[in-house]
Design a protein around this nucleic acid. Structure first.
Lengths: 221, 221
DNA sequence: ACTTATGCTGGACGGATATCCAGTATTGAA
DNA sequence: TTCAATACTGGATATCCGTCCAGCATAAGT
């Protein structure tokens, strides 16, 4: 790991500070203003150095898109205001996961119409670090009763991961998303319903896996 | 408090989701793209509505400067509130619920020894407004399989409420807490295990009900 | 029929922003 | 000295972005 100059560390700390306080990444001009630079280019040079050294990333050309890259044991929390921690959990973060009642066919991004709400949960309880493609799905019917998933449950689905045999997956079948168990048997994949009243599904062509279940939430009704 | 239309709530949820996942506020055009608007003005109209209703603020003219305005529901859940939460939900609050692996006999307050961790969740998902006597309980065994509660699940228990017939309750039996279904039949209360391999329990003296299940959380293992 | 609220399209403007180019000054190593 | 790395200035540009204007459509209430 390349090391940072003192100035670069100051820049990085400033970015981190602004993010934690204002929940907003500073622009290059705001960085320049804070350090009394007369040109945004001075800030850019440092940011570029931080990028090339792997401490920052961003979306090229996009405003306020700087993101600090997490790295394991870099315990520099110099001015962290952690005195406010009470019974809460340390090192945990709450994320917002959108919940859909149903997912129409097509690209996974086409889900905006059906959004029902959202769930806030800490990532430790969730069990994964959610991505932009993590979402909740309201369970309808009892086809997964054998896995103790019942009507009304909300399952948290992570899109874009390879399912292992036995995982519960959200699969696209006949233009609708249903919950099934993904089974890999002798090299062949099929979907098993965890209820004898429902048939198993052997795919004709290819499996349309929308995502893998990572967690479940149930409310008393 | 002015209310939000469904569309406005979807917009707000999306902004919150993006902030919690990417630590970056979406631009109006990114909002428009997600909702398949053909004009950034559609997103602007919603954002303006959210601003005037007090759910959002921003720095005028600045890119990605939307910020969600925190609004607690007023209730004092002081011990449970985690003030380090990055983005709170409107009209809602994220609370910290302690989780125990087992509950020893005695006063419910004497449980600090057995604490295993805690869960952070918003109260809308939880379904109740938690009190100081709300706690999580790790499920051991499969005596409640008939209610789709399996080993490893965490049930959220609310202490001190009167159970209704059919509720799942945490009951104190022989110095141990087990999960059972509370049944009231012809004026007599007893506890039913939702698994034929376990016996029902007819109380000799009085029922020791520790609390009623209000929610359930499951992680993939 | 008339109004109002909501939701969206399409275009446009100006300021904000990231990025590039050229140049200066300082420091330290070869 | 010479060279390279670091730190910064000043200016320029293409694009990104918030915002405004005008208009259309639908639905609900009066």
């Amino acid at each position: 790991m390349k090391e940072l100059t003192r100035r670069q560390k100051q820049i990085l700390d400033f970015i981190q500070h602004r993010q934690s306080i204002e929940k907003l990444t500073p622009t290059l001009r705001e960085i320049a203003a804070h350090f009394r630079f007369h040109s945004p280019n001075a800030a850019l040079a440092h940011v570029q150095a931080l990028r090339s050294k792997g401490f920052l990333k961003n979306l090229p050309g996009r405003a306020r898109s700087l993101q600090i890259i997490e790295r394991g044991s870099g315990g520099s929390v110099s001015w962290a205001r952690d005195s406010s921690v009470r019974a809460g959990k340390l090192n945990s973060q709450v994320v917002s996961v959108p919940v859909y009642g149903a997912i129409p066919a097509g690209r996974p991004a086409d889900r905006t119409q059906e959004q029902e709400g959202c769930i806030l949960m800490d990532i430790d309880t969730l069990g994964i670090k959610p991505t932009a493609r993590t979402f909740g799905l309201k369970v309808k019917g009892d086809s997964m009763i054998g896995k103790s998933i019942v009507d009304g449950d909300t399952v948290i689905i992570e899109h874009g991961v390879q399912p292992r045999s036995g995982d519960v997956v959200a699969a696209l079948i006949d233009g609708q998303v249903t919950l099934k168990t993904f089974v890999l048997q002798q090299g062949k994949a099929y979907l098993r319903a965890e209820n004898p009243r429902y048939p198993n599904l052997i795919p004709q062509e290819e499996l349309q896996i929308q995502g893998v279940m990572v967690a479940l939430v149930r409310r008393r009704r």
